[in-house]
Nucleic acid binder design. Structure first.
Length: 256
DNA sequence: ATGGCCAGCATCGCTGGA
């Protein structure tokens, strides 16, 4: 089973690319972030026509997450974190083929020390608490999405320039490590990977052309799923398109 | 040259992203 996560930066704009990518890559489960759509505008019919059933939690203009599952509806869907009342639609979970899939759009944080940074750290602490419970109930669990955290310096094109900055600060990285301490493993690092592998590139300054990026989109797997994981990667093809999302899809393959 | 982009909402400039 192939799991994927993609921050589409507006599902309205990126729908043609999403449909192309579903056809080309045939993922079994897709976690979308930044759909930026309210329920009535969600392109359910187009996605169902591509063979996927959907569950989503959306709002106008900002945020918005969705789960797509090929050939079946995600079961036991939960929106939001019961430990963190939040107007912002950033979390949705569902079960597909016995795997609990948690799709997260972790806050950006804007700048270290800002109110949004405090919100990000509080959001992460509540996520850790809730995931501890989810893992106890669902040993086969994947946490996938836009984490807005580059876990290590090798995930940053220019670690000196980014040192201590948003997405790279020690408290953010410590929060990522606490998620790992729950037993979640970074699927990408289970395998040999090319140096300077990134999942996001700034639209400005020819970021993608120069490969000046960050690896901030991740698929974390519980130990039983990590043991079944046969491959993990980042699909740069969509980032080469006209009018791309600034994020590339990330994928993990789970064997039987 | 210390900034260059993009999406949404709503105009002809702002917020937010990362």
């Amino acid at each position: 089973m192939k799991l994927a996560a993609w921050n589409v930066n507006s599902l309205k704009v990126r729908l043609p690319q999403l449909l192309d990518w579903l056809a080309a890559s045939a993922p079994d489960v897709v976690c979308l972030q930044e759909t930026k759509l309210e329920g009535a505008n969600f392109p359910r019919a187009e996605i169902e026509a591509a063979g996927y059933q959907v569950a989503f939690s959306g709002q106008k203009t900002y945020n918005g997450v969705a789960l797509l599952a090929r050939g079946e509806a995600p079961a036991d869907v939960v929106c939001g974190n019961p430990h963190f009342p939040d107007e912002q639609k950033r979390l949705i979970a569902g079960t597909v083929r016995g795997v609990r899939v948690v799709c997260a759009y972790i806050p950006n944080g804007q700048a270290v020390g800002s109110d949004k940074y405090a919100y990000k750290l509080a959001w992460l602490a509540a996520l850790e608490r809730w995931l501890g419970e989810e893992l106890a109930a669902h040993p086969q669990l994947a946490l996938a999405g836009d984490f807005n955290i580059a876990p290590e310096d090798r995930d940053v094109h220019d670690p000196a320039a980014w040192a201590g900055q948003i997405l790279c600060s020690d408290p953010e990285r410590a929060a990522f490590q606490r998620l790992q301490a729950l037993g979640l493993q970074d699927s990408f690092r289970l395998f040999e990977q090319a140096p300077k592998s990134f999942s996001w590139w700034d639209y400005r300054m020819l970021g993608f052309q120069k490969n000046q990026g960050l690896r901030i989109d991740h698929i974390l797997l519980s130990a039983p799923l990590a043991a079944r994981c046969t491959a993990a990667g980042i699909d740069r093809e969509m980032r080469k398109r006209e009018r791309p999302s600034d994020h590339a899809p990330v994928t993990a393959e789970i064997g039987a």
